[in-house]
Design a protein around this nucleic acid. Structure first.
Ligand SMILES: [Mn+2]
Ligand SMILES: [Mn+2]
Ligand SMILES: [Zn+2]
Ligand SMILES: [Zn+2]
Lengths: 145, 145
DNA sequence: ATGCAAATGCAAACTATTTGCATTTAGAAT
DNA sequence: ATTCTAAATGCAAATAGTTTGCATTTGCAT
């Protein structure tokens, strides 16, 4: 049993067959730890399994996302990126210059969400919060120009 | 001078030529007041100007967005939608089923943003907040199935 | 071992959006 | 008013990320 089989039990528990493509992608996602496009993951996977197909990568990621093993996010005009589903609720602080991402564990929205539910009659299941700005270093670089 | 010319001055002030397509789209955007896809705006525009082209609509909306006359937003897997650039800072509450959008005038993030600036040394210039859920009607429809 | 639903590879389709190009047009200059 | 030119438009084709149809292979329950 090679390392690509190591997620068999995990996958079966989630109601999925363990295939070499799925095991490999799971391995890659765990190793990388930052959001990547399907294409990038495909290229990395190809180094190990040269016969893997891009459609398969999309289908695997779709299934993973459906099972909440991964999360898919996309920004305006860009390709979607995929990463392991975060263990805890969190948000992102993104540097507009260098694209560095800082994860924020605190969420300030609980009370707000409840008050919006009350005032709108929506049932809110989810939210998206991202902060944009410039990191320390990029602030300096920008100031120097 | 028909009503479609009425934005000539406004457009010129923003460094754009006044064309019948731009005037018409501006009129439609002001009338509609809710985010619409380029295609929907195109269909509405066609009722008045049957020769308008979808590419033109995309190009006009792109230019408007560049000039901050409109704002473009897009959700996972969906078409982008365009609306007039909000006069005041606001956020959106989006129904995951029917895609209805409710605008929220309150922003609960001021204090949070400051505290994040302090703890991270970022200079935060912007944020994106969207709430997702189900509107009253869609809740009922979902419950009935 | 066998059977079958599920997963895969491959190629083609899809679809929102963009782009190239010939033509028209707005607005400045004459 | 006429002329000029860069910008805007219509049309068709291209683009690109993603999805899908289908023949084949594979995982896994029996
Ligand atoms: Mn939160
Ligand atoms: Mn806000
Ligand atoms: Zn930075
Ligand atoms: Zn709804």
């Amino acid at each position: 049993m090679n390392e690509c089989d190591s997620y068999k039990q995990y996958l079966n528990q989630h109601g999925m067959k363990s295939t070499k493509q799925r095991n490999l992608l799971l391995l890659i996602l765990k190793k990388i730890q930052e959001p990547q496009t399907a294409e990038k993951l495909y290229l990395i996977a190809k180094e190990t399994d040269s016969s893997i197909n891009l459609s398969t990568v999309y289908r695997v990621l779709e299934k993973f996302t459906e099972k909440k093993i991964t999360i898919r996010t996309s920004f305006l005009d860009d390709k979607s990126v995929y990463s392991l589903y975060p263990k805890t609720h969190q948000h992102q602080l993104i540097c507009l210059r260098c694209k560095k991402i800082v994860l924020l564990e605190n969420c300030p929205l609980e009370a707000f969400q409840h008050s919006v539910e009350k005032s709108t009659d929506f049932s809110i299941v989810n939210h998206r919060l991202e902060l944009y700005g410039y990191c320390r270093q990029c602030q300096k670089i920008i100031a120097a120009n």
